[in-house]
Design a protein around this nucleic acid. Structure first.
Lengths: 235, 235
DNA sequence: CAATAATACTTGTACGTACGAGTATTATTT
DNA sequence: AAATAATACTCGTACGTACAAGTATTATTG
């Protein structure tokens, strides 16, 4: 269970930054200084720093040093909080399919992990209304491996994420998304009560969670003519 | 005008991949083979391959080799860093209108501050290409009040945000966005070389900066059929 | 014939050295 | 005093060597 040297240095420096021992704008020790402090060669010191730069913790400056960067952890397009908190008040949700066993559908746009493919797939599908207007069709796939009793109980306060957090102590730690403008196909058009050929905003999301065995794959189809999808953030 | 060796190798291999001399799934020459072919050391060969891996052209496999990967690029637009850093290398930018005096257009979707409305409006408009495909039409409005000499000089490294940062020491501190799926109208369709009626992803952004007198309003029109707009984040 | 061992590859880590190039300070010259 | 040169730092590139560790093939063993 031995760690490599450069990872050791890398983690040490990362910890120092996260604990605030190096503030934004500060310079880390130079490569040569790391060499003598940790009894390593410059090759190893460089590798540790290069990794930090790749994770955008620091910024390397030729002739100057490695400066701690402002870290923008931010901006999931849909914030992680989910739909309910993003839009106003009068939201209704209609389950088209309650959570049940499903299959890893080819409709999922983002690459599905192998470990997920080899485990049971759970699926549910909802439509979100603002007032009486359907605005979003939401399809969700995830592994049921780590969620015992999931199918037997209702969502807490109607929220999937809240259920994960409060019942299973699983948090969202990241996401990747892809956005596409598409024309509504027959089926989705019908569900969203728009004409075929209406432009829809198609959002594909893959959520990573604090449980490495649970990833959530969502395909969202949004009618944006009246209610555009929005978000904002400030550092 | 001398290029570094590893970049030379890197570009050579990249070209080979892009021309199809190495197909998806193929293995590139091993590090040792590159050494003898190009009369370099393994350090240099590794660096070239590591760069390719970072750009996700290849996948390195311990004990096996470097395999050409399926390249699913997406335009990581929505992080604050802007366009240039988000996508890979082969981006071109064409100015339709160089920065010049403009007016606070009604095309701006997000509410314009009163203070902005009362000051001079600067405007520029560009098209972004990936390869030779136009993928985004970008329109930008902002107040010229706090940017002396802005019209006289070129962008630093072609980047608006870098120019703001390095020349004026102004940083982006927040943004709000709205997303819409729309059908391409005649003018935009022509510029992006798509048919009218093609669905476009319309992103409206308002950036707030560290200088309270400078807000940037952008309207982006993206062709997402080939290159979806993407982002990801982890906490 | 099947399981195992040896082998020849691959990439990964780490050592050490050398010089080039960018940056900032200090010393020198004008 | 101001411009210039020397310097001492930074990081970037590139050389060369060595061994560890993963993968696949071949040879050996039982």
């Amino acid at each position: 269970m031995k760690e490599t040297k450069y990872k050791e240095i890398h983690n040490h420096l990362k910890g120092q930054i996260q604990q605030g021992n190096y503030q934004i704008g500060d310079y880390l020790p130079s490569e040569n200084e790391l060499c003598v402090r940790f009894s390593i060669t410059r090759t190893t010191a460089r590798k540790a720093l290069d990794e930090l730069a790749k994770e955008s913790f620091i910024e390397r400056q030729h002739g100057k040093g490695s400066r701690v960067k402002e870290r923008r952890q931010s901006l999931g397009l849909l914030n992680v909080k989910g739909f309910s908190e993003a839009v106003g008040e009068d939201i209704k949700t209609l389950f088209l399919r309650k959570p049940a066993a499903g299959k890893w559908d080819s409709e999922i746009m983002l690459p599905v992990n192998d470990s997920d493919l080899n485990s049971i797939c759970l699926y549910f599908e909802r439509i979100r209304f603002v007032g009486n207007e359907p605005v979003m069709l939401e399809k969700n796939w995830f592994s049921g491996q780590v969620l015992p009793d999931f199918l037997c109980s209702e969502f807490i306060e109607g929220s999937f994420f809240k259920t994960l957090s409060k019942k299973y102590f699983i948090e969202i730690i990241g996401s990747s998304q892809e956005l596409r403008a598409e024309l509504a196909c027959g089926k989705n058009a019908g569900l969203l009560k728009v004409k075929t050929g209406t432009p829809l905003l198609h959002i594909s999301v893959k959520f990573s969670t604090s449980n490495s065995k649970l990833n959530i794959y969502s395909e969202l189809y949004c009618v944006t003519s009246v209610y555009p999808v929005g978000n904002s953030y400030f550092i």
